[in-house]
Each structure stands twice: as C-alpha cells, then as structure tokens.
Amino acid sequence: TEDEKKIQELLKRANGDVSKAEKLAQSQGNEELARRLREYANK
C-alpha cells in the first residue's frame, strides 16, 4: 500500500531504526504515519 511504501522509505532513511523513523514521521507532522510505523514494527 501507499502507507507501507512511506513506512519503508522512512525506515530506509532511519537505517531500519523504528524509533528514529517514528520521530522522522512526527517531525513531518505525520502522527498517523508515526502510529502506523509503531504498529508495523510490532508485527
């Protein structure tokens, strides 16, 4: 999905570090994506 692409892109930029990727999403003002990242990471 589009969200998964965004999540994978963020994870790439954060070198696979979920908490960093989450902070990136939040810094972009994207709380929804940050929440999805957390769920994605907890799979």
Rank of each mutant, 00 (worst) to 15 (best):
Ser27Val: 08
Leu24Lys: 03
Ala34Asp: 00
Lys5Phe: 11
Ala34Gln: 03
Asn30Val: 03
Gln28Trp: 12
Glu4His: 09
Glu9Gly: 05
Thr1Ser: 13
Leu10Pro: 00
Lys5Gln: 12
Ala14Tyr: 10
Ala25Gly: 01
Arg35His: 06
Lys5Met: 12
Asn15Ile: 02
Ile7Arg: 01
Arg38Ser: 03
Gly29Ser: 03
Ser19Leu: 13
Leu10Ala: 06
Ala41Asp: 03
Leu24Glu: 07
Glu31Lys: 07
Ala14Ser: 08
Ala34His: 01
Leu24Asp: 05
Ile7Lys: 01
Asn42Phe: 10
Ala34Pro: 00
Arg38Cys: 07
Val18Thr: 05
Asp17His: 03
Leu33Ala: 04
Glu4Phe: 14
Glu22Tyr: 13
Ala14His: 05
Lys6Met: 15
Leu10Lys: 00
Gln8Val: 12
Asp3Met: 15
Ala14Trp: 05
Arg35Ala: 10
Asp17Gln: 03
Asn42Met: 13
Gly29Thr: 02
Glu4Gln: 09
Lys12Met: 12
Glu39Pro: 00
Lys12Leu: 11
Leu24Gln: 04
Gln8Gly: 05
Ala14Met: 08
Ser19Tyr: 14
Arg38Pro: 00
Asn30Ala: 06
Thr1Gln: 11
Lys12Val: 08
Glu9Val: 05
Leu33Gln: 01
Glu9Trp: 07
Arg35Val: 07
Thr1Glu: 12
Thr1Ala: 13
Lys5Cys: 15
Gly16Glu: 02
Ile7Cys: 08
Ala34Cys: 07
Glu4Arg: 09
Ala21Tyr: 01
Ala41Gln: 07
Arg13Pro: 00
Lys23Gln: 13
Ala34Leu: 10
Glu2Ile: 13
Ala41Val: 12
Glu2Gly: 09
Arg38Thr: 03
Gly29Met: 04
Leu10Arg: 01
Thr1Val: 12
Ala21Asp: 00
Ala14Gly: 02
Lys6Leu: 15
Asp3Tyr: 15
Asn15Phe: 08
Lys6Arg: 11
Leu33His: 01
Arg38Tyr: 03
Asn42Tyr: 11
Val18Ala: 07
Glu39Asn: 05
Gln26Arg: 15
Gln8Glu: 09
Leu11Ser: 00
Arg35Ser: 06
Ala21Ile: 03
Ser27Leu: 14
Ala25Tyr: 02
Gly16Trp: 15
Arg35Asn: 06
Lys43Ser: 11
Ala14Asn: 03
Glu31Asp: 11
Ser19Val: 12
Ser27Met: 14
Glu2Met: 11
Ala25Trp: 02
Thr1Leu: 13
Lys23Asp: 05
Glu32Val: 06
Gln26Leu: 15
Lys6Gln: 14
Glu4Tyr: 14
Thr1Gly: 11
Glu39Ile: 05
Lys43Glu: 09
Arg35Gln: 10
Asn30Trp: 15
Ala25Pro: 00
Lys5Asp: 11
Gln26Asn: 06
Lys12Asn: 09
Lys43Val: 09
Gln8Asn: 07
Lys43Thr: 12
Lys6Ala: 14
Asp3Ser: 08
Tyr40Leu: 11
Arg38Met: 04
Arg36Ile: 12
Lys23Glu: 12
Asn15Tyr: 07
Arg35Leu: 10
